[in-house]
């Protein structure tokens, strides 16, 4: 038995060491060469999950680049932003999606659940620090191993093909042209009733902590950060735990400007579903946002009041 264990160790040890060594070299190589430089004119970045991904059409807003990604928790957004701010000195403002579901406990799953790890971890693995890695490791060990394995393959592929264009390949996210309109069909189901019965009461400390990290990072880099809540379908909004959301916002992010568009009045056919705008809604909302930004929204002392006044003038509230 002793001979068997020793032989096994001698067989696997060199293999494991070589794999670890190659993995480190690949990560460093990708981190050094990754191309995430945006056009010099771009001064504002939009980050977040699918709500900003589908709702902000950056081709309609001057000097804005949307790199939101559906299903992305703040853990991954933080990694992306860290790199973006390091290589893009022209970025002065960051808009980060801040919606009810981003405070909910579900976000833990979005961070280290198997499905999400497999999708997001390989995109950002090469720039994570040890704290980030240990966050994943201690919450989902087997998922972490799978994600590291996938990262190894992705990094090797990038190095072999010399293709480091994460932004132009939209691997880090972009505006998503959503064609669907499911409001009518959803209204025929009891989705809202079920959501009301299952209203979330727990929040994700992990996601909130990483949003805090995002805020701190922006302050360190002297970049203005603003939180944005996108338009939501009114009956859907009522299913959300607004008290929890507001408590978190006031407790941790009271000093961060918050633009609340949840009650912007849009037609049913401008929603893809209850919490995503489709291309029609995105067009209307992006033009409105562009107009507000041009009017100095991001520099107002009370931006929400300015939004409310503008909306009432344009009859969108």
């Amino acid at each position: 038995m002793k001979k068997f264990i020793t032989s096994l160790l001698w067989f696997f040890l060199p293999l494991i060491l070589v794999v670890i060594l190659i993995s480190i070299v690949l990560k460093k190589s990708v981190n050094d060469k990754v191309d995430c430089v945006v056009d010099e004119k771009i001064t504002t970045l939009v980050l977040g999950h699918s709500q900003t991904e589908c709702g902000i059409n950056d081709s309609l807003i001057a000097n804005v680049k949307n790199i939101s990604s559906g299903g992305e928790s703040y853990f991954y957004t933080y990694q992306k932003l860290k790199k973006m701010l390091l290589v893009n000195k022209n970025i002065k403002t960051v808009l980060v999606s801040f919606s009810n579901n981003q405070t909910e406990v579900l976000m833990n799953e979005w961070t280290y659940g198997d499905k999400y790890l497999k999708n997001f971890y390989p995109k950002y693995n090469f720039m994570m620090d040890s704290d980030d890695v240990s966050t994943v490791l201690k919450n989902n060990f087997t998922g972490y191993i799978s994600a590291e394995h996938q990262s190894f393959l992705n990094n090797a592929d990038m190095v072999m093909k010399s293709n480091y264009n994460l932004l132009s390949d939209k691997k880090w996210g972009s505006y998503l042209y959503l064609k669907r309109n499911k409001i009518d069909s959803l209204n025929k189901t009891d989705t809202i009733k079920k959501m009301l019965l299952n209203r979330v009461t727990d929040y994700s400390k992990l996601n909130v902590d990483y949003l805090k990290k995002i805020v701190t990072l922006c302050k360190e880099k002297n970049v203005k950060i603003t939180l944005v809540r996108m338009p939501l379908y009114s009956s859907y909004f009522k299913t959300k735990n607004e008290i929890l959301f507001q408590r978190i916002r006031k407790e941790y992010f009271s000093d961060v400007p918050f633009l609340d568009f949840h009650s912007v009045s849009l037609n049913d056919d401008e929603f893809g579903d209850y919490d995503h705008l489709n291309y029609k809604g995105a067009k209307k909302f992006s033009l409105l946002l562009d107009d507000l930004i041009k009017q100095g929204l991001l520099n107002k002392n009370n931006p929400q009041q300015f939004i409310n006044e503008s909306l009432s003038k344009s009859k969108l509230n």
């Binding site: 067989f11 293999l15 794999v19 799978s146 394995h149 996938q150 393959l153």
Partner: peptide, 17 residues
């Protein structure tokens, strides 16, 4: 012989997923 086994392991590693 070990080299051959390593090759099989590398192939498994590369195609797993």
């Amino acid at each position: 012989r070990y080299g051959f086994y390593y090759l099989i392991i590398v192939l498994i590693f590369a195609f797993m997923g």
